[in-house]
């Protein structure tokens, strides 16, 4: 038996949060990746392969693909939105990340997130979706080239409790990244991860990408509960930064 009904008349009353016809629930997730020159070669190739695998795995899952929206923002001396928040279908054309620019501007990446997220959430809500708190996977192999007060100011804006759509941020440091900075970026101390010293950067990135995929699946599976925390397990070859490093 199917249900079809004439659409409801438009109401003049201000809409409560979930009023109107809801079409589904979605979890926005963003990959924010370092595209600075130090990522050249195997590291950036590992990122690109990881994104392809992520798309393919999610697209073929019967339940997850409809519940996740994925966006890609990259940064070097500037930030660029390389993939607007999208459904991960087999047909989705992914950008190929390539090293560019001279800097590693965390400030521009954080500012791009602060601008993009509320706009994306508003768009989803406007289309009738119930939206879960967004998650960000932040990956860098270097240290911010901005002045520290500048990127910290952008970070404070992103973490501001008054920012309604503030995301859960999981931060991953590889290569020359600074563990203290990575820990600071993460929205919870247990969301900061640093590659173990001496490991291969490209190998660590591959592990990171596989963990991002697992997190996406696990989080989307448990969406309904609406728990604040995002499902995530530490990737191989990383240490969790919730305790100060010795």
């Amino acid at each position: 038996m199917g249900i079809s009904e004439p659409s409801a008349p438009a109401s003049a009353v201000p809409a409560p949060v979930f009023a109107g016809t809801v079409v589904g629930q979605v979890l926005p997730m963003y990959f924010v990746g370092d595209e600075s020159h130090s990522m050249s070669g195997d590291p950036i190739a590992a990122v690109n392969q990881g994104l392809i695998d992520l798309r393919d795995e999610v697209a073929k899952h019967p339940l997850i693909g409809k519940k996740v929206r994925f966006g890609i923002i990259t940064f070097a001396d500037t930030a660029e939105t390389r993939l607007q928040l999208s459904e991960l279908s087999e047909e989705l054309v992914l950008p190929t990340l390539a090293p560019r620019g001279r800097g590693t501007s965390y400030a521009s990446a954080l500012e791009a997130l602060r601008q993009t997220i509320p706009a994306d959430v508003a768009l989803l809500k406007g289309s009738g979706y119930q939206v879960h708190r967004p998650s960000v996977f932040f990956l860098s192999d270097g240290q911010p080239t901005d002045k520290s007060d500048k990127w910290r100011a952008r970070l404070d804006e992103l973490k501001d409790p008054g920012f309604r759509e503030r995301p859960n941020v999981l931060a991953f440091g590889v290569g020359e990244a600074d563990p203290d900075v990575i820990r600071e970026l993460a929205s919870s101390p247990r969301y900061g991860f640093m590659m173990t010293s001496g490991a291969s950067t490209a190998g660590a990135i591959a592990e990171f990408a596989s963990s991002m995929l697992n997190s996406m699946v696990a989080s989307a599976e448990r969406l309904d509960r609406g728990e604040q925390t995002i499902e995530f397990e530490k990737p191989e070859g990383f240490v969790q930064l919730d305790a100060p490093l010795l």
Partner: peptide, 10 residues
Amino acid sequence: PSEDGLIGGG
């Protein structure tokens, strides 16, 4: 619903 209009919040 949660005050920030998103689902969740523990």
